[in-house]
Design a protein around this nucleic acid. Structure first.
Lengths: 227, 227
DNA sequence: TTAAAAAAGATAGTAATACTATTGTAAATA
DNA sequence: TATTTACAATAGTATTACTATCTTTTTTAA
């Protein structure tokens, strides 16, 4: 069975919908590979054209520039994560259990690659870890925010914040805690790989320790607020 | 009285020591202003030359490229923060009180500008908040790490981790918690300004709420681990 | 089935970026 | 006084980040 999840993307992110054509889909697939190889700074549309056997000009018909493409990829990832959280928590009633499963999902690195044909979620997660923050750390963040480019991330945060709030009605900072959880899971994956002395997780193969750290962080906040 | 704090910098960060000449000091001062204005992507040595009335070539005699300059600035900031933490905690014996003061220092935005003539710490903090992660989110992070460019950040983390560990000998993740504290304080300052729906701190003028959030996060972790 | 439209390929061109190199000159130092 | 050092001035190059145009191929609609 070939499930094909289709995520509704913000139309301002692209000039031509990459999902609508074969070339568009190949741009997505190959850009994920090439950004992983070269890093976002080293990545150019010219190189991508050569890499996938098309021209720079053809890629520019789909995306205004490489930053928009990055924002597209990152934004797709957050939507996909929210979708995974929805199916993960749908048959659970206890918000504590929901939160626990969400923390686990976020702590462990993505390994599988199911729902989509041309997107490798594992590689895409690496991009979000190493390059994701560059999508909003710009001088045009206000403009991009007006275009609603960060809506998927905000919705994901809001969903997690709702679960947090359901666990403890008194807790005052559910959104901040959700953001912290999301961001720090990714950060620690990066440190683990590249700056291992910043964390305790250097040899943490299946991310059990990171999971435990995050659990304590989240539950400690929820309990500590209202002991 | 004009105190002049001199921070020992890693010599591989520059080609010629910017602290040793007037032009060098002006490069530091003006680059802090211009990166704030243009953002790191929009910033170039050519523009900096025009901005401060010198030539591109002269700036290249001090720094190999703009990324090295950014790393220099960020690295200076972490050293300066560690220095502030040292003087802040030197006459305190209770690690809980030390940690509390560190959390407060990190939660509140820098307002003053004392110890140095040509470095505006408030502006520099803005750069660290908005551009700091770009100093290590690159493909050459391994190389840069070998050059010890991230040593000031690691030392600061280690110092905070030591205080955390002193608060709770049983707690298993002092380094990860220190990293989290440092990173999230900066992140939340950015969200507050640019993506306010991601936090509860939009109208948090003197960062009292952020401070409270961080206190609960840290103390919750320390208590939750060993209730 | 054919006409037209849309998509993609091919090629060229431009301004800006990220440098390197060379030469001349003023100031500091030996 | 000679010489190093520091900086300014200028020029030049490869690459980046695009835009434009024209042709060919593919899709779709009458």
């Amino acid at each position: 069975m070939q499930l094909n999840l289709r995520i509704q993307m913000n139309e301002s992110l692209y000039l031509r919908d990459p999902e609508s054509t074969e070339l568009g889909q190949r741009i997505i697939q190959n850009s994920i590979e090439l950004i992983n190889e070269l890093g976002f700074e080293g990545f150019t549309f010219k190189k991508l054209g050569e890499y996938m056997g098309t021209t720079e000009a053809s890629i520019y018909r789909y995306f205004e520039n490489k930053h928009r493409l990055l924002t597209y990829l990152v934004s797709w990832y957050w939507s996909w994560l929210e979708y995974r959280i929805i199916i993960l928590t749908q048959n659970m009633n206890d918000p504590r259990e929901q939160l626990n499963r969400v923390v686990e999902l976020l702590s462990r690195k993505i390994k599988d690659d199911i729902s989509t044909t041309y997107i490798n979620e594992e590689l895409l997660q690496n991009i979000v870890i190493a390059e994701g923050s560059k999508s909003y750390l710009t001088k045009h963040v206000g403009q991009d925010n007006q275009y609603q480019f960060f809506k998927p991330f905000k919705e994901l945060c809001a969903r997690i914040a709702d679960i947090i709030q359901a666990c403890n009605k008194q807790y005052a900072y559910p959104k901040s805690l959700a953001t912290t959880l999301l961001e720090m899971c990714h950060s620690h994956h990066y440190y683990k790989l590249h700056l291992p002395s910043l964390t305790e997780f250097a040899k943490d193969k299946n991310d059990q320790e990171l999971y435990s750290f995050m659990q304590i962080l989240v539950n400690g906040s929820l309990n500590g607020a209202n002991p």
